[in-house]
Design a protein around this nucleic acid. Structure first.
Lengths: 343, 343
DNA sequence: TTGAAAGCGCTAACAA
DNA sequence: TTGTTAGCGCTTTCAA
């Protein structure tokens, strides 16, 4: 049923080598024979067998993307960008999703060892040193997205700076009692955003208050960046009563959804009673009027794919790590300057 | 650098056939030699080359999933379930996302012709007859999810029935002027949910009113199932003033987000001024207290993967199409019975 | 410019 | 129980 290169060769009265040249439009072929072969290929509806090609060429035109699936919509948008870019470049994407963090090694191993893909995109997941070493020595291309290792290419958003500016926005609005809701600190973004937050407080000579920081637990192997965690964190803060901060930096938009819900349940108004600034700018952020730090998700997707393909094709360029800036998107969740509030 | 089956054979002092038997734990091998070989495999850190295996076995342990990426979070959850299930069964997933509907044929073609995958999962996308025919005659396994073709396996949710019950819920709450916001009718769910809506009105002897139906446009090649469309549809309905329906069936939760936003902007209260019931029960639905019809997304994912694998392994079973029920999840967006409203 | 033939790394049929 | 060998469908030397 399947037509092979031999069938084409026979029909055209040439050797399979010549057919191969026609397919891969090699310059080493007579234009006439090439066209003749192409016509026959059309007639027979021949298509090269992708696996056989990969085996012979020692490259599969396929890359693997390893993502933590969590509940973060950040990944959906990222994935979409990656897929688009890959398709344009004629690459296929194998998707691995890790449910529990420790499972990531299974997939790293798989890609290293099965030689089924030309490269891997590791998303928001740290890489242990020994694996980094294996990637380097096996010269399997890899780029880290939203993660970092000194010996590998990576793309990061300016988490510290972004958190700094988010917090600064609150401070400039007149807030002095500012809290934060973060994801788990085992996640790099979680750690860095907290750092940025503290840095901003320090810079503006504000006191950091333990009770105003809630770090969401990594329940069910997740990283705390989800609505439920945000909801519970907010409820916890609400217990503070009059000690409650007047403003909150929430480390992800998705958590902010939970915050909004908890606030609403308690009749706490946003932004009148508490101002909220998020992080990510997922599509839905606009629909709750959330002021947030936008991550250049689409740019990250494009750049990382380009970098990966570049490394596949020219393995010896210098390692580099690029940081992308975030952008403050002002909507309604922070309201006006606090001095004008009482009016 | 790469160690092959020959290296192992040499080190073990056996033929490659024996090594192959050890790998694929064939019964036709002496237990001792098998264990000896396995030890050597460990030592050499040998792993079979996945592509070479696939080529020789004529099966790749990989399936393709073709999804319309739109903006629907429905797919994220579905994808996660599919991935999980596939991993358990030792299959890899190649993800193709179609941005514009007409691009789906590119990928269908690709899977048919490159023979790189053992089967395909086609999500929420119709399949033209000629392609269906090609799948059948090439005996490449395929199952349709949230889509239908008489000659192919498929899984569907009870869209008509779900819409009927959603509308019925509104009616039983005392509403008589009920509107609907739908996605584009070129989408099967869009069409069927409208059908269910009308059926419910008819069944309860209510008049269908054109002005109370808004069908979201398929702008930018999308299907209207997104927040922006919902937002605009709601604004349009709000123009009706006193003719505005007292209740709305919104064909997807994500559109309902837009509806909520528009309502809030105009100071229209939910559920006091207008009751809303959605469809999908995406995770965020809970966070706006949306009453909605739950689709059994995870079940669909599991069942369709199982069906696909079954068909790959036993191609000759009967074609079947299974429908899955939806479930009404009551939250706050419909409020109490309308007769109690004025209190 | 072309054909023949040697791989790519494995599986599976066949013979021993 | 094992080794040998012929594919799987292609790419890519090497000669011609």
């Amino acid at each position: 049923l399947a037509v092979t290169i031999y069938d084409v060769a026979k029909a055209a009265g040439v050797g399979i080598g010549t057919v191969s040249r026609a397919i891969n439009n090699s310059p080493q072929i007579n234009l006439d024979t090439k066209q003749r072969i192409q016509k026959i290929i059309k007639q027979l509806n021949y298509q090269p067998h992708a696996l056989a090609q990969s085996l012979a060429r020692k490259r599969s035109n396929t890359i693997a993307t390893i993502v933590p699936f969590f509940t973060n919509y950040f990944f959906l948008e990222l994935l979409r960008g990656i897929q688009q870019r890959l398709t344009e470049n004629n690459y296929d994407l194998i998707l691995y999703s890790v449910d529990k963090i420790d499972r990531r090694e299974v997939f790293l191993d798989r890609t290293l060892v099965e030689r089924r893909v030309d490269g891997v995109l590791l998303i928001s997941l740290g890489i242990p040193d020994d694996y980094a070493e294996r990637f380097i020595s096996s010269s399997l291309a890899i780029v880290l997205v939203d993660s970092f290792h000194p010996n590998l290419d990576s793309f990061l958003v300016e988490n510290v700076d972004g958190a700094f500016r988010a917090t600064e926005h609150l401070i400039k609005l007149g807030h002095r009692k500012i809290g934060m809701i973060d994801g788990h600190l085992s996640s790099r973004p979680g750690l860095l955003r907290l750092e940025g937050f503290k840095k901003a407080l320090r810079h503006y000579h504000l006191q950091f208050d333990d009770r105003h920081l809630v770090i969401c637990d990594a329940t069910h192997g997740e990283d705390g960046f989800n609505e439920v965690s945000g909801y519970e964190a907010m409820k916890q803060l609400l217990e503070l009563g009059s000690n409650m901060p007047t403003a909150l930096f929430v480390a992800s938009d998705i958590q902010a959804f939970g915050v909004f819900k908890a606030a609403k349940e308690r009749g706490v108004r946003i932004p009148e009673d508490v101002a909220i600034v998020g992080f990510d700018d997922i599509e839905l952020a606009e629909f709750i009027g959330l002021t947030t730090m936008r991550q250049p998700i689409y740019d990250i997707a494009c750049l990382s794919v380009e970098k990966l393909l570049a490394r596949i094709n020219g393995p010896d360029s210098l390692i580099n790590s690029k940081k992308l800036n975030t952008e403050l998107i002002v909507r309604e969740s922070c309201g006006a300057h606090i001095a004008n509030r009482s009016k």
